[in-house]
Design a binder for these strands. Sequence first.
DNA 1: ATGGTCGCGCAGCGA
Length: 260
Amino acid sequence: MRIATWNVNALTVERMDRIVGWLDIAQPDIVCLQETKASDTGFPAMVFHARGYASVHHGEGRWNGVAILSRVGLDDPVSGFADGEPPDDEARLVTATCGGVRVSSVYVPNGRAVGHEQFRYKLRWLARLRSHLQADAAPGPVAVCGDFNVARDDIDLWSPAAFVGDTHVTPEERAAVDELEAYGLRDVFRERYTGVGGLFSWWDYRAGNFPNHKGMRIDLVLMSSDLADRVRWALIDRNARKGSKPSDHAPLFVDVDPPA
DNA sequence: ATGGTCGCGCAGCGA
């Protein structure tokens, strides 16, 4: 079973062509999308349906927006946090059961600048994600996939010096993701490429950063151990970042023996 | 060269 995550940076016409073309080539079974920037009524569910994918979308229109596509079933969808607290103002989380896996598509707030109100929101949001996972917990494997806007280690940066004092790399942000690992989720891509640098999932559009290999690894697939132990391989599909009108993120996919 | 490019939506902000 192939599980993918991709921050697509809006579902423009050109971007939809890319996504559909990528589905045809990569043949993922489950896809978590972020930054659809679509309303729920504007989400092109029929395009995905025609390719054999059921879908759930949680959107707000101009900004954010997350979705899950699945061709191995899609049940019990939940939009946003399931912790019983007041709903988040922004559409950044959607959860569903696909192929026996409880899958969440997450778009963690960017944080804007260290100390900014949006930075505090980011830290609160990551803490609340853990509460959500605990509240949503049921027996069986879990996969939390998406744009975490956190580079977990300096090896996930093209240049650690370039990010001193910036968001995405602070101890507080990294600790917030470590808390998810303490809860029992594993960064399965990094497990397969221990100590290997230069493996990025996002590149700034500006200044030729992509051809110059100036990127960050901020998109993650976190899996519960029962699933992480069954991973066969993982790949960031850098080819999908090439050419005209790309997203600024590349898709990450993980192949796993399906749960028993 | 301390900027650069996108998307949204029609100015300028957010990433």
